[in-house]
Protein backbone atom coordinates (compact mmCIF):
# COMPACT_ATOMS: atom_id res chain seq x y z
CA UNK A 1 0.00 0.00 0.00
CA UNK A 2 2.83 2.41 0.79
CA UNK A 3 5.41 2.99 -1.89
CA UNK A 4 8.14 5.53 -2.29
CA UNK A 5 6.30 8.04 -4.43
CA UNK A 6 2.80 8.20 -3.07
CA UNK A 7 1.36 10.79 -0.76
CA UNK A 8 1.61 10.28 3.01
CA UNK A 9 -1.31 12.61 3.64
CA UNK A 10 -4.24 12.79 1.25
CA UNK A 11 -6.97 15.35 1.81
CA UNK A 12 -9.94 14.89 -0.50
CA UNK A 13 -12.77 17.37 -1.01
CA UNK A 14 -12.57 18.31 2.64
CA UNK A 15 -15.23 20.62 4.04
CA UNK A 16 -15.61 21.82 7.63
CA UNK A 17 -18.56 23.73 8.95
CA UNK A 18 -19.04 25.44 12.30
CA UNK A 19 -22.75 26.07 12.66
CA UNK A 20 -23.85 27.40 9.30
CA UNK A 21 -20.46 28.82 8.41
CA UNK A 22 -18.13 26.84 6.14
CA UNK A 23 -14.60 27.33 7.43
CA UNK A 24 -13.03 25.00 4.88
CA UNK A 25 -14.48 24.07 1.51
CA UNK A 26 -13.41 21.59 -1.19
CA UNK A 27 -9.83 21.20 -0.02
CA UNK A 28 -7.75 18.73 -2.05
CA UNK A 29 -4.18 18.50 -0.84
CA UNK A 30 -1.42 15.89 -0.84
CA UNK A 31 1.65 15.80 1.32
CA UNK A 32 4.13 13.76 -0.68
CA UNK A 33 6.64 11.46 0.89
CA UNK A 34 9.81 13.31 1.77
CA UNK A 35 8.65 16.82 0.96
CA UNK A 36 8.23 19.92 3.09
CA UNK A 37 4.95 21.57 2.24
CA UNK A 38 4.31 25.02 3.63
CA UNK A 39 0.81 26.19 4.27
CA UNK A 40 0.26 29.92 4.24
CA UNK A 41 -2.83 32.06 4.52
CA UNK A 42 -4.22 35.05 6.33
CA UNK A 43 -5.30 34.86 9.96
CA UNK A 44 -8.56 32.99 10.24
CA UNK A 45 -8.27 31.42 6.80
CA UNK A 46 -8.55 27.91 8.25
CA UNK A 47 -4.96 26.62 8.51
CA UNK A 48 -5.25 25.34 12.07
CA UNK A 49 -8.64 23.86 11.28
CA UNK A 50 -7.05 21.93 8.41
CA UNK A 51 -4.25 20.66 10.67
CA UNK A 52 -6.78 19.49 13.24
CA UNK A 53 -8.61 17.61 10.51
CA UNK A 54 -5.43 15.91 9.33
CA UNK A 55 -4.73 14.50 12.78
CA UNK A 56 -8.35 13.45 13.12
CA UNK A 57 -9.28 15.66 16.07
CA UNK A 58 -12.73 16.23 14.68
CA UNK A 59 -14.80 14.70 11.95
CA UNK A 60 -15.10 16.60 8.68
CA UNK A 61 -18.51 17.84 7.55
CA UNK A 62 -17.61 16.59 4.10
CA UNK A 63 -14.81 14.72 2.36
CA UNK A 64 -12.02 12.63 3.87
CA UNK A 65 -8.46 12.58 5.16
CA UNK A 66 -6.13 9.62 4.69
CA UNK A 67 -2.73 9.28 6.29
CA UNK A 68 -0.43 6.51 5.04
CA UNK A 69 -3.38 5.09 3.19
CA UNK A 70 -5.62 4.81 6.26
CA UNK A 71 -8.56 7.02 7.13
CA UNK A 72 -7.73 9.10 10.20
CA UNK A 73 -11.12 8.08 11.53
CA UNK A 74 -10.44 4.39 11.07
CA UNK A 75 -12.43 2.40 13.62
CA UNK A 76 -9.61 -0.09 14.00
CA UNK A 77 -7.78 0.88 17.20
CA UNK A 78 -4.52 -0.64 16.05
CA UNK A 79 -4.53 1.50 12.91
CA UNK A 80 -5.34 4.61 14.92
CA UNK A 81 -2.50 3.85 17.31
CA UNK A 82 -0.06 3.10 14.52
CA UNK A 83 -0.84 6.46 12.90
CA UNK A 84 -0.25 8.34 16.13
CA UNK A 85 3.19 6.85 16.45
CA UNK A 86 4.05 7.91 12.91
CA UNK A 87 3.31 11.62 13.19
CA UNK A 88 4.66 14.37 15.39
CA UNK A 89 2.44 17.34 16.05
CA UNK A 90 3.31 20.85 17.16
CA UNK A 91 0.27 22.89 18.14
CA UNK A 92 0.04 26.60 17.47
CA UNK A 93 -0.15 27.46 21.17
CA UNK A 94 2.27 24.71 22.24
CA UNK A 95 -0.40 22.88 24.29
CA UNK A 96 2.12 21.55 26.80
CA UNK A 97 0.54 19.56 29.63
CA UNK A 98 0.56 22.10 32.40
CA UNK A 99 0.41 19.50 35.17
CA UNK A 100 3.57 17.74 33.95
CA UNK A 101 7.21 18.82 34.01
CA UNK A 102 9.05 19.61 30.80
CA UNK A 103 10.66 16.20 31.07
CA UNK A 104 7.35 14.38 31.39
CA UNK A 105 5.88 16.44 28.57
CA UNK A 106 8.56 15.31 26.17
CA UNK A 107 8.48 11.77 27.53
CA UNK A 108 4.70 11.61 27.14
CA UNK A 109 4.54 10.18 23.60
CA UNK A 110 7.27 7.68 24.53
CA UNK A 111 5.36 6.51 27.57
CA UNK A 112 2.17 6.15 25.55
CA UNK A 113 4.06 4.05 23.03
CA UNK A 114 5.73 2.08 25.80
CA UNK A 115 2.34 1.20 27.28
CA UNK A 116 1.33 -0.40 24.02
CA UNK A 117 4.55 -1.97 22.87
CA UNK A 118 6.87 -2.17 25.83
CA UNK A 119 10.62 -2.41 25.44
CA UNK A 120 11.67 1.05 26.56
CA UNK A 121 13.48 1.30 29.85
CA UNK A 122 13.40 4.39 32.07
CA UNK A 123 17.06 5.00 31.15
CA UNK A 124 16.21 4.96 27.44
CA UNK A 125 13.41 7.43 27.98
CA UNK A 126 15.68 9.71 29.99
CA UNK A 127 18.38 9.69 27.33
CA UNK A 128 15.92 10.31 24.50
CA UNK A 129 14.32 13.25 26.27
CA UNK A 130 17.65 14.94 27.00
CA UNK A 131 18.77 14.29 23.42
CA UNK A 132 15.69 15.97 21.96
CA UNK A 133 16.06 18.91 24.35
CA UNK A 134 19.60 19.44 23.07
CA UNK A 135 18.35 19.11 19.53
CA UNK A 136 15.96 22.03 19.88
CA UNK A 137 18.66 24.09 21.55
CA UNK A 138 17.63 23.80 25.19
CA UNK A 139 19.78 22.85 28.16
CA UNK A 140 19.01 19.62 29.97
CA UNK A 141 18.49 21.40 33.28
CA UNK A 142 15.20 22.97 32.25
CA UNK A 143 13.76 19.45 32.14
CA UNK A 144 12.55 19.79 35.72
CA UNK A 145 10.70 23.06 35.26
CA UNK A 146 6.95 23.24 34.84
CA UNK A 147 5.55 24.66 31.57
CA UNK A 148 4.26 27.72 33.44
CA UNK A 149 7.88 28.61 34.25
CA UNK A 150 8.94 28.79 30.59
CA UNK A 151 8.93 31.75 28.25
CA UNK A 152 6.71 31.51 25.18
CA UNK A 153 9.68 30.76 22.94
CA UNK A 154 11.02 28.07 25.26
CA UNK A 155 7.58 26.48 25.47
CA UNK A 156 7.52 26.38 21.68
CA UNK A 157 10.86 24.58 21.60
CA UNK A 158 9.75 22.10 24.23
CA UNK A 159 6.62 21.45 22.17
CA UNK A 160 8.85 20.91 19.16
CA UNK A 161 10.99 18.46 21.13
CA UNK A 162 7.81 16.61 22.07
CA UNK A 163 6.78 16.52 18.41
CA UNK A 164 10.18 15.08 17.46
CA UNK A 165 10.63 12.58 20.27
CA UNK A 166 9.13 9.59 18.48
CA UNK A 167 11.28 10.19 15.39
CA UNK A 168 8.02 10.40 13.51
CA UNK A 169 8.28 10.43 9.74
CA UNK A 170 5.42 12.91 9.32
CA UNK A 171 5.68 16.27 11.04
CA UNK A 172 2.71 18.58 11.34
CA UNK A 173 3.84 21.94 12.63
CA UNK A 174 1.48 24.83 13.26
CA UNK A 175 3.50 28.04 13.23
CA UNK A 176 6.71 26.59 14.67
CA UNK A 177 8.64 29.87 14.56
CA UNK A 178 6.03 32.38 15.67
CA UNK A 179 7.10 33.85 18.99
CA UNK A 180 10.77 32.98 18.44
CA UNK A 181 13.38 35.67 17.96
CA UNK A 182 14.83 35.85 14.42
CA UNK A 183 18.01 33.98 15.42
CA UNK A 184 16.10 31.12 17.00
CA UNK A 185 13.75 31.07 14.04
CA UNK A 186 16.59 30.59 11.59
CA UNK A 187 18.14 27.98 13.89
CA UNK A 188 14.84 26.19 13.72
CA UNK A 189 14.83 26.40 9.94
CA UNK A 190 18.27 24.87 9.94
CA UNK A 191 17.22 22.13 12.34
CA UNK A 192 14.20 21.18 10.28
CA UNK A 193 16.34 21.25 7.14
CA UNK A 194 18.86 18.87 8.71
CA UNK A 195 16.19 16.52 10.01
CA UNK A 196 14.60 16.51 6.62
CA UNK A 197 17.84 15.68 4.90
CA UNK A 198 18.84 12.91 7.32
CA UNK A 199 15.53 11.28 8.21
CA UNK A 200 13.67 11.68 4.94
CA UNK A 201 10.66 12.96 6.80
CA UNK A 202 7.66 14.66 5.34
CA UNK A 203 6.42 17.87 6.92
CA UNK A 204 3.44 20.13 6.69
CA UNK A 205 4.43 23.51 8.11
CA UNK A 206 1.90 26.26 8.74
CA UNK A 207 3.82 29.50 8.75
CA UNK A 208 3.65 33.24 8.43
CA UNK A 209 7.41 33.42 8.29
CA UNK A 210 8.54 34.10 4.77
CA UNK A 211 12.11 33.14 5.68
CA UNK A 212 11.12 29.68 6.83
CA UNK A 213 9.02 29.37 3.74
CA UNK A 214 11.75 30.33 1.33
CA UNK A 215 14.45 28.34 3.09
CA UNK A 216 12.64 25.05 3.45
CA UNK A 217 9.60 24.45 1.35
CA UNK A 218 9.55 22.14 -1.61
CA UNK A 219 6.03 23.30 -2.31
CA UNK A 220 3.74 26.00 -0.99
CA UNK A 221 -0.02 25.79 -0.48
CA UNK A 222 -2.04 28.96 -0.10
CA UNK A 223 -5.42 29.01 1.63
CA UNK A 224 -7.70 31.98 1.43
CA UNK A 225 -11.00 32.12 3.35
CA UNK A 226 -11.28 28.36 3.60
CA UNK A 227 -10.43 27.53 0.01
CA UNK A 228 -7.19 26.22 -1.39
CA UNK A 229 -6.01 28.95 -3.71
CA UNK A 230 -3.05 27.14 -5.17
CA UNK A 231 -0.34 24.57 -4.52
CA UNK A 232 2.98 24.62 -6.27
CA UNK A 233 6.65 25.51 -6.10
CA UNK A 234 7.45 28.81 -4.48
CA UNK A 235 8.40 30.20 -7.88
CA UNK A 236 5.02 29.33 -9.38
CA UNK A 237 3.03 30.56 -6.41
CA UNK A 238 4.82 33.89 -6.28
CA UNK A 239 3.89 34.63 -9.87
CA UNK A 240 0.14 34.13 -9.38
CA UNK A 241 -1.92 37.24 -9.60
CA UNK A 242 -3.95 37.39 -6.41
CA UNK A 243 -4.38 40.12 -3.80
CA UNK A 244 -3.37 37.92 -0.84
CA UNK A 245 -0.31 36.52 -2.58
CA UNK A 246 0.55 40.02 -3.72
CA UNK A 247 0.51 41.32 -0.15
CA UNK A 248 2.16 38.28 1.41
CA UNK A 249 5.05 37.79 -0.97
CA UNK A 250 5.52 41.22 -2.45
CA UNK A 251 4.96 43.32 0.68
CA UNK A 252 8.14 44.93 1.97
CA UNK A 253 9.20 42.03 4.21
CA UNK A 254 8.34 39.37 1.70
CA UNK A 255 10.04 41.05 -1.22
CA UNK A 256 13.30 41.43 0.69
CA UNK A 257 13.34 37.79 1.72
CA UNK A 258 12.58 36.63 -1.79
CA UNK A 259 15.14 38.89 -3.35
CA UNK A 260 17.76 37.48 -1.08
CA UNK A 261 17.07 34.10 -2.59
CA UNK A 262 16.96 35.36 -6.13
CA UNK A 263 13.25 34.86 -6.77
Amino acid sequence: MENATDAVVEVRDLGVRFGSQWVLEHIDLDLKRGEILSLVGASGSGKTTLMRQIIGLSRPSQGSVHVLGHSVHDDDHEVARMLRARWGVLFQHSALFSALTVFENIAFPLRELEKRRGGLSETDIHALVILKLEMVGLKGDIAWLMPAELSGGMAKRVALARALVLDADILLLDEPTSGLDPDSASEFDQLLGELHATLNLSALVVTHDINTLAALSDRVAVVDSGRLLTVGSLQDVVDIDNPFIERFFHGSRGAAALQQRGL
Binding site: I55, L57, R81, A85, V89, F91, A95, F97, S98, P109
Partner: peptide, 17 residues
Amino acid sequence: AAMRMTGEIDALKAFGC
Protein backbone atom coordinates in the same frame (compact mmCIF):
# COMPACT_ATOMS: atom_id res chain seq x y z
CA ALA B 1 -12.30 22.65 30.99
CA ALA B 2 -8.99 24.51 31.35
CA MET B 3 -7.21 21.68 29.56
CA ARG B 4 -9.65 22.14 26.71
CA MET B 5 -8.88 25.82 26.58
CA THR B 6 -5.13 25.32 26.43
CA GLY B 7 -5.42 22.60 23.79
CA GLU B 8 -4.07 19.92 26.14
CA ILE B 9 -7.02 17.66 25.39
CA ASP B 10 -6.24 17.90 21.68
CA ALA B 11 -2.61 17.14 22.42
CA LEU B 12 -3.62 14.03 24.39
CA LYS B 13 -5.65 12.80 21.45
CA ALA B 14 -2.89 13.59 18.99
CA PHE B 15 -0.51 11.37 20.97
CA GLY B 16 -3.02 8.55 20.95
CA CYS B 17 -4.10 8.93 24.55
